[in-house]
């Protein structure tokens, strides 16, 4: 649709803890979930405009994480993030993406919100952010033992045999 056109109308994103974030439609559209909603409206452009989307409830995302996402989106429209090539050409994040993104994800990590950001990016369907977050996870756990990883991310102790089997079953495709 009108992807190339700068759409500077604003839309308000509301987190599950009722924090509000104003963002332009152009910025918001890096989320494919939001794009689906807005484009549906654009298709009906000829109908009355009262119907225009003003607010969108981002049900699954909390304010502190949505804050990061909005920050990411605003920067993304200024300078699109480099594509993360697979296999990774380095083990250091700042050698793979631009400095802003490397600092950004480091900040999220330090804030202990990395896992929540992964979930939120997945939910809101923001591929580039999801990749960046996963990249951070990958570089962080590289060369670490199970215990260290669990400590870093504050995960619960060992899985039961049953749970382990379950996870393997679910993630067959990984192998």
């Amino acid at each position: 649709m009108n992807e190339e056109i700068d759409d500077n109308r604003e839309v308000t994103l509301i987190s599950n803890d009722c924090q509000q974030f104003n963002i332009t439609i152009k910025e918001a559209k890096i989320s494919k979930l939001i794009r689906e909603i807005i484009e549906e409206e654009e298709e009906d452009d000829d109908s009355d405009c009262e119907d225009e989307v003003k607010t969108i409830n981002i049900i699954k995302v909390s304010g502190d994480v949505l804050q990061y996402i909005v920050e990411y989106a605003k920067n993304y429209v200024l300078e699109a993030m480099d594509e993360i090539e697979s296999p990774l050409k380095s083990v250091k994040v700042d050698e793979i993406v631009q400095p802003w993104y490397a600092e950004f994800i480091q900040k999220v990590y330090a804030d202990g919100k990395l896992f929540q950001l992964v979930t939120a990016a997945n939910y809101m369907n923001i591929q580039e952010l999801l990749q960046l977050a996963c990249l951070k996870v990958a570089t962080t756990i590289k060369g670490k033992s199970q215990e260290q990883i669990r400590e870093i991310f504050g995960l619960s102790p060992e899985l039961t045999a049953e749970e382990r089997k379950q996870i393997e079953e679910e993630n067959k495709w990984v192998r």
């Binding site: 689906e36 909603i37 409206e41 009906d44 109908s47 119907d51 969108i56 409830n57 049900i59 939910y123």
Partner: peptide, 28 residues
């Protein structure tokens, strides 16, 4: 009139499906 589904309705259904698809087995 206008949209067949408002964004509230839509995002709820989407989220519901999301949840149902992301729950751990046996609830996936």
């Amino acid at each position: 009139k206008g949209r067949m589904f408002g964004n509230e309705d839509y995002i709820q259904v989407y989220t519901l499906c999301y949840d149902m698809c992301t729950q751990r087995s046996p609830y996936n």
